[in-house]
Design a protein around this nucleic acid. Structure first.
Lengths: 193, 193, 193, 193
DNA sequence: TATGAATGAGGTTTCATTCAT
DNA sequence: TATGAATGAAACCTCATTCAT
């Protein structure tokens, strides 16, 4: 009743560009998606995109910044917690939830690492990954335990991908299973100390 | 010792194209790598590439087919073994070795999933992944155990990526650690039965 | 009087592309004419052509559609007339006039049948020719009379070609002569009934 | 039993190139047919074509020269005959037969006038057409009669094209009908004198 | 009598971007 | 807040042709 009439859409064009762009980026990849396509699917001109964003890259950057804020907040929060096992479990739990709410973007980043790496956000992505690892691992722990931390994170991501391709059953159930396994893995790392 | 003079190079151009192409694909991504670049780095004309390969995609396909043969052999072998825990461990061990020998290609596929998905090899990649999962998981096992199988595989891949980005220490050591963790994870899945 | 200064040309680029394209297509053939040539003769970039038309073929299609409308109208008109000799004569008369006003295009189609056949307009061209024949011939008439109908049409076309190559005298006079002969031929077909 | 084994084919490669080339030229047009296609259909290399012919154009020229000799002979013969109506009828008769035996080539020339015009044979083709017209028309005859001569020739050609597209009935029957009509037309021109 | 390998020129098409309106 | 028109660069690919073997 309120969202799709042309008049009501006034002012939310910027948002709609972001939505459609992410949709296409995730569907076809960043390089394969042209501004023409985005504009066409929106029913506007390419030039209109340039009114709202300075470059193609900036569209992605803006989506990225909007949608990854929760991760930054998670990292900030985690840095103030004690490094207990409970904290680590909570980190994984929150991260898992975040992955769901920004599923398209994370799927996009997973599948377009090469493209993202060349972009200005590449560095940020890498830093954030390292920050996450840093929060999960215990300094001076053996190499296998460090691997376990990364493994736990990747397990959550892997859960999402199974969700994409298998698409059987309840996605939420898959996520819970992945979370359970990830916590299990990190427990191993913690016990070892 | 004698390989780079123009005369000596006769006859191995096809191979050299494959090498340089993979190098660049892995470095910059598939879409971002142009045939001009490949040709220039080789010191030949674009047209020369087209003498040896019908399309850009075919270059990738040929590299892919050459380098993933070990995986096919591994799968074939595994299908004839009993589904014991020992077999599964051996699968992971061999898979881990394969990942090392074809490191560039696997890194490429990891980072260019979006591009690969659209290509004709996309289907093959997906099938192979499912085949691997099928060999590791036990039918009718609980969802968490199925996730563990995928997790074990991704752990090996994650090991490689750490190898890329951290690039500290001995890569071989990192691989061993990842393998150890992966085997550990799969053991959990097996015990549960 | 005022038409060729760059400022004044605004807005008629599409038309100018069509004009120049037809000019070159007729001069050199469809395949031999490159978009570079068209663009150069117009003083714009190749990309500008693609702003106005999706493909090279579409340029031809648009010219074709614009210039053959009279033929469609002629066919539509003829279908509502009684099949008398007078009607047939009138058809030839009008067709002859049409050939003159769209001379470049018809010359082009005559000389580039092979190219046109492969294009999407090929079918349309064929259908139109058959429709014309259908309007001129009498059902169940002997084979020779059917040939005469085609012959009459081709005579008009032949008139145009003589006009091109001989280009002596008054073209209009040649056209009149061709028309006279064509009508004569069709009369033979009609008398025979 | 004798023609297709690789051994027997020795020595007739040149001829086979001509055959396949004409086949493809007629099918797809001169410009659209590449030497690669010709070579592939023959099962030889492009370079092999260059052993037998200096250029692509020369392949066409050689086919043209071989197959249009009858026309030259016809013209030579006709020039020594008296300019009676009987002679003209005989010319048309012989021309009609020639069109059949060289059908592919004449179809090709009809459909590729634009391409042929740019080639070195273009001039020859035009000269031969004018020579034919010269033999049929009577000097100082009225314009309509001159048109009739061209019309008669085009009628024979038109007969061939109907043969292509309608492809119903007996082609030979169509040819006879076209010949009959053509003779009829030329008779008109003659009577008028 | 052919082939394998390569080239240089050029083809059509697409892209991100700009700017006057 | 957008559009219409255009550009420059570059993409993938094909072609006729050459030449050493």
């Amino acid at each position: 009743m309120s969202s799709s009439s042309p008049q009501q859409r006034r002012g939310d064009t910027r948002q709609r560009i972001q939505d459609v762009a992410l949709e296409l980026f995730a569907e076809q990849g960043y390089e394969k998606t042209s501004l023409r396509e985005i504009a066409e699917r929106l029913g506007v001109t390419k030039a209109a995109l340039y009114y709202h964003f300075k470059t193609k890259e900036e569209i992605l950057i803006s989506v990225f910044n909007d949608q990854t804020r929760p991760i930054d907040e998670l990292i900030a929060w985690a840095r103030e917690q004690p490094r207990t096992l409970e904290t680590k479990e909570e980190i994984l739990r929150r991260y898992s939830e975040t992955l769901v709410s920004g599923a398209s973007l994370y799927r996009f980043m997973q599948e377009n690492q090469a493209a993202v790496r060349e972009l200005s956000i590449g560095e940020t992505v890498k830093n954030r990954l390292f920050a996450m690892v840093e929060l999960l691992r215990t300094a001076d722990s053996p190499l296998t335990d460090q691997v376990r931390c990364v493994s736990a994170l990747f397990t959550l991501h892997a859960g999402m991908m199974f969700l994409q391709h298998v698409e059987a059953d309840d996605p939420e159930q898959t996520r819970q299973a992945a979370l359970e396994v990830a916590i299990d893995i990190i427990k191993q790392a913690h016990h070892a100390e």
